[in-house]
């Protein structure tokens, strides 16, 4: 069955590039949301197979969004991968400690993103 992935990032351009890169590089269904709250709502409705979540967003940031996702039975089990420009190891360790499947670095290379996600999520290459 086709996998679906929800991409939550407030940056329009980055969201667009990531969506494009993933649509080209995978056969997954890509859904997008421009804020944490929009993402949570969408996740509840469609229950995607995984969520790629930007860390730094206004209002509801990545960790806060994650907390709400984990607090809801409908979204509790969905694997989440953080996307962050915080490159320092301490920061990444902190993020990695938040019961996520992985942390990907920003900026990402559009050509590499699909493979990075596959590896992180343990999804076999197509």
């Amino acid at each position: 069955m086709t996998k679906s992935l929800l991409l939550i990032d407030d940056d329009d351009d980055i969201r667009e590039v990531a969506q494009l890169a993933l649509e080209v590089g995978t056969d997954w269904r890509i859904l997008t949301a421009a804020s944490g709250s929009e993402g949570i709502e969408l996740a509840r409705d469609v229950c995607p197979d995984a969520i790629l979540l930007d860390v730094m967003m206004p209002v509801l940031d990545g960790p806060a969004t994650l907390e709400q996702l984990r607090g809801d039975d409908r979204t509790r089990e969905i694997p989440v991968v953080f996307l962050t420009a915080k490159a320092r190891p301490a920061e990444r360790d902190r993020l990695a400690g938040l019961s996520v499947s992985g942390v990907l670095a920003k900026p990402f290379d559009p050509l590499e993103l699909p493979e990075q996600l596959r590896i992180t999520l343990g999804w076999a290459s197509v």
């Binding site: 490159a87 990444r92 990695a96 996520v100 499947s101 992985g102 942390v103 990907l104 670095a105 900026p107 990402f108 290379d109 050509l111 590499e112 990075q116 590896i119 992180t120």
Partner: peptide
């Protein structure tokens, strides 16, 4: 340089 040096070093898989 098709792959960013940064992205090489910063992937963490929990």
């Amino acid at each position: 340089a098709p792959i960013a040096p940064e992205s090489l070093e910063t992937i963490v898989s929990v």
